[in-house]
C-alpha cells in the first residue's frame, strides 16, 4: 500500500510461501517495510531469515504470494529498480580460484540490469567504498588472502558502492571484530540518516541496537513477533539530513540519483565527502 504522499513502501510482502526442495521454509509471510525504516530480522537457526531476504532479492522463487520492491513486482525482473537495492550475503559465495583484488570485487557492485559495464571512475568509487569499511589500503590485494571478517567487509563495500536506497544485510556481525562492528554501526547510521531503508538479519542486535526501528522475529517460517509499534513513532531523521520535499519527490519518481542533498557519504576517515 502507498503512504499518504503516494510513495510505495520499500518492500511489500503478501502471503509469501517458499518451498525449497521438500522443505516448506516460509509459510505465509506478510510484511511491509516503510521507506527509511531500519528493520531487524531475528529468529533461530533455520527459521527462514536468509530465505526471506533472498526471496526479496529474487534469488528464491515464491511458491505462493507476492513480493514488491518499491512497487515493482519481483516476477517482472526487468521492471525492478535493481540499482536501488544493495545486498550483503551471509557468506562469501565465491570460490578462491585465482587472484581477485578487493577493488575488482567491489566494482562488480556497480552493475545492474542496465549497466553491464561500470562507468568511468569505477576504480575510484571502489576505493572510496573500501575506505568506508577501513580497507582502502588493501584495495589492490587478493581478497582470498583476507581474513573472514575482512572478506565480509569487502562484501559490505560491494553493497555500499551502489549507494542503495534499500540495503539488505544478512548477519553482518557474526565473525566480525568489535572495532569493525562499531565501524559498521557508524556506516549504517550514516546511511539511515540519509533515508536508506535497511533490513538487517541478526541474532543479537549488539552495537546495531540503537539504530533499529522495528524488530521482526521469524519462527519456523512464520512471523512470530513484529513490534510494528515503533513504526509510527520511529525517530524522524535528523532535521538537516531530512531530504527536502522537492528532492524527495524526485526520489519517489525514481528520477533522482544524484541531487539528493545528502547523497555523498561523509567519509569519517577524512572528514570529506566521497566523490560521486
Amino acid at each position: 500500500m502507498r503512504d499518504r504522499a503516494g510513495r510505495h513502501p520499500a518492500v511489500q510482502i503478501d502471503g509469501l510461501h517458499v518451498e525449497l526442495g521438500a522443505n516448506s521454509v516460509l509459510e505465509g509471510i506478510d510484511l511491509e517495510v516503510a521507506d527509511g525504516q531500519t528493520l531487524a530480522l531475528l529468529g533461530a537457526n533455520g527459521s527462514g531469515k536468509t530465505t526471506l531476504v533472498r526471496a526479496v532479492l529474487g534469488l528464491v522463487p515464491a511458491t505462493r504470494g507476492r513480493i514488491a520492491v518499491y512497487g515493482a513486482d519481483l516476477v517482472m525482473r526487468r521492471a525492478v529498480p535493481w540499482s536501488r537495492l544493495g545486498y550483503v550475503p551471509q557468506r562469501v559465495n565465491a570460490q578462491p580460484v585465482m587472484s581477485v583484488t578487493a577493488e575488482e570485487v567491489v566494482a562488480a557492485g556497480l552493475l545492474d540490469h542496465r549497466r553491464l559495464v561500470p562507468g568511468s571512475h569505477a576504480r575510484e568509487r571502489a576505493q572510496d567504498a573500501l575506505g568506508q569499511v577501513g580497507l582502502r589500503e588493501r584495495s589492490r590485494d587478493n581478497v582470498h588472502l583476507f581474513s573472514g571478517g575482512q572478506q565480509q567487509r569487502v562484501l559490505i563495500a560491494r553493497a555500499l558502492i551502489r549507494r542503495p536506497d534499500l540495503l539488505i544485510i544478512d548477519e553482518p556481525l557474526s565473525g566480525i571484530d568489535h572495532d569493525s562492528q562499531t565501524a559498521l554501526a557508524v556506516t549504517l547510521s550514516d546511511l539511515q540518516a540519509r533515508g536508506t531503508t535497511i533490513i538487517v538479519v541478526l541474532h543479537d542486535p549488539g552495537v546495531l541496537a540503537p539504530l533499529i526501528h522495528r524488530t521482526v522475529v521469524l519462527d519456523h517460517g512464520r512471523v512470530r513477533h513484529d513490534d510494528a509499534a515503533g513504526i509510527e513513532g520511529f525517530p524522524p531523521r535528523a532535521g538537516s539530513t531530512l531530504p527536502s520535499d522537492a528532492s524527495d519527490d524526485a526520489r519517489v519518481r525514481g528520477t533522482d540519483r544524484a541531487p539528493h542533498p545528502d547523497h555523498h557519504a561523509l567519509d569519517l576517515t577524512t572528514g570529506r565527502r566521497g566523490s560521486s
Binding site: 545486498y87 565465491a94 575488482e104 553491464l116
Partner: peptide, 23 residues
C-alpha cells in the same frame, strides 16, 4: 573483453550477479 565486468561478476559470484539484476 567488452563484457568483462559483467562476465566477471557472473563467474565470480553468480548469486550476487542475480541480486544485482544482471541478466
Amino acid at each position: 573483453l567488452g563484457l568483462r565486468p559483467a562476465l566477471f561478476a557472473l563467474c565470480y559470484d553468480e548469486e550476487f550477479a542475480r541480486a544485482s539484476g544482471l541478466p
